[in-house]
Simulated scan of single mutants.
Amino acid sequence: MIRLNNDTPVSVLQEVKKGSLVTDTFSKTGLVETIEISDDGLYRVYTFHLVTGRTIIVKR
């Protein structure tokens, strides 16, 4: 299980794939359904959509 939060290294965020088991260490745990990576000019935003319908967002 991979923990995703704002302290997670970029190298770990890059290795997360569809089907990976992830958690935000609070209430969101599940398999990754889709991953979106965007850049808002200040941060690189990783959006992980889980099969449970929840979303984990990490800004790095």
Rank of each mutant, 00 (worst) to 15 (best):
K17E: 08
G30E: 00
D7I: 03
D40K: 06
F48P: 00
L21V: 14
G53D: 10
S27C: 12
R3N: 10
T23K: 07
L13M: 06
L4C: 07
V12L: 15
I37W: 02
N6P: 00
S11P: 01
G53V: 10
Q14D: 13
V12W: 07
I56G: 02
R54L: 12
S27R: 11
L4M: 06
Q14M: 13
R54Q: 15
D7W: 06
I37S: 05
L21W: 05
R54M: 14
R3S: 13
K28F: 08
T52I: 06
R3W: 03
L13V: 07
P9K: 12
E33M: 11
E33S: 15
V10Y: 13
T25V: 07
F26Y: 13
P9E: 12
V16A: 00
T23D: 04
N6C: 06
T25D: 14
F48T: 01
S20T: 15
G41Y: 06
L4S: 03
H49C: 05
K18T: 15
S20F: 02
R44V: 15
S20L: 03
V22N: 04
D39T: 12
T34N: 14
G30I: 00
G30Q: 02
Q14K: 14
T25A: 13
S38N: 06
T25N: 13
T23E: 10
V45L: 06
I56F: 01
D24H: 11
T34E: 13
Q14N: 14
E33C: 05
F26L: 11
K18I: 15
R44H: 09
L50V: 05
D24I: 06
R44T: 15
E33Y: 11
L21Y: 08
I56R: 00
V22T: 04
D7R: 08
L31Q: 06
T8W: 04
Q14C: 05
S27E: 13
G30F: 01
G53T: 08
G19Q: 04
D24C: 08
T34R: 12
T55D: 04
G19P: 02
V32C: 02
L4W: 04
I37K: 14
G19L: 05
E36W: 01
Y43I: 01
T47H: 03
N6I: 07
F48N: 00
T47Q: 10
I56S: 00
T29H: 09
E33D: 15
G19S: 06
T23I: 07
V10P: 01
V16T: 02
V22G: 03
L31K: 12
H49T: 14
V51C: 07
I35N: 00
K28V: 11
S11N: 15
N6L: 08
Q14S: 13
V10R: 11
R44I: 15
I37G: 04
V10H: 08
S20G: 03
T23P: 10
L4T: 03
D40L: 07
V58F: 08
P9T: 12
N5T: 11
V16P: 01
I37P: 03
K18W: 04
Y46A: 00
R44W: 08
E36Q: 10
L50C: 09
V22R: 01
K17N: 09
E15T: 14
R3Y: 10
E36Y: 02
T55H: 07
G53Y: 09
G41V: 05
T52Y: 05
L31S: 08
R54E: 15
